[in-house]
Amino acid sequence: MALISLKSVTKIYPLGHQEVVAVDEFSLSIDAGEFVVLAGPSGSGKTTLLNMIGCLDQPTRGEIWLDGHDIGCASQKELSDLRLRKVGFIFQDYNLIPVLTAAENAEFTLMLQQVEKKQRRKRVLDLFSALGLDGLENRKPSDLSGGQQQRVAIARAMASGPAVILADEPTASLDSQTSEELLLLMQKLNEEQGATFVFSSHDPLVISHAKRVVRLRDGRLESDQ
């Protein structure tokens, strides 16, 4: 059974007195361990799809299944739980919590899951080591570079071992060398730890690292290679 399954998904947003169809009759299936990029120009529906897969939004029509859970029928509380247990987010602007240290940011979802302090600190230190963040545990986000912040964001997304890690334009705020390093890191995590990554991006660098590229145009599936 697929980890993520979208069946004829449509998402319509009201815009004043009009309606905008962001995603139109879209179907897709992603298995565990894949490294997928949703590619397409701005307004093609990549972020909308990612938000729905990540339980931040629900489809207007159609079905979305995540690890056996029907997102379209879930309550707000169930969506919160699914986000906590099944999804890890990496944002374009990192979105680290400014009052927490790097390690505390990475531990955040584990804290929400009430994992014991010693256990979560070990998990985060292992991730920091794998991501080249040794020695930066106690720094505040404002004391880290963009690349370091995004690595902390990756650690945060990976920490609780979610079913899927969703990355919305993760390299958009980074220079090409840092982007390359990060993509290699995520590829390594995908290969060594079997983490499932779904990106939304129109960055050719990201697309070149993907094992599978799903192209969208005007909310519809254009190609799946």
Binding site: L56, R83, L84, R85, F89, I97
Partner: peptide, 16 residues
Amino acid sequence: TREFGVLMALGMRPGQ
């Protein structure tokens, strides 16, 4: 506001 959105995306409940 944006930070609360991120916290909710990370799994924090509205009640929290």
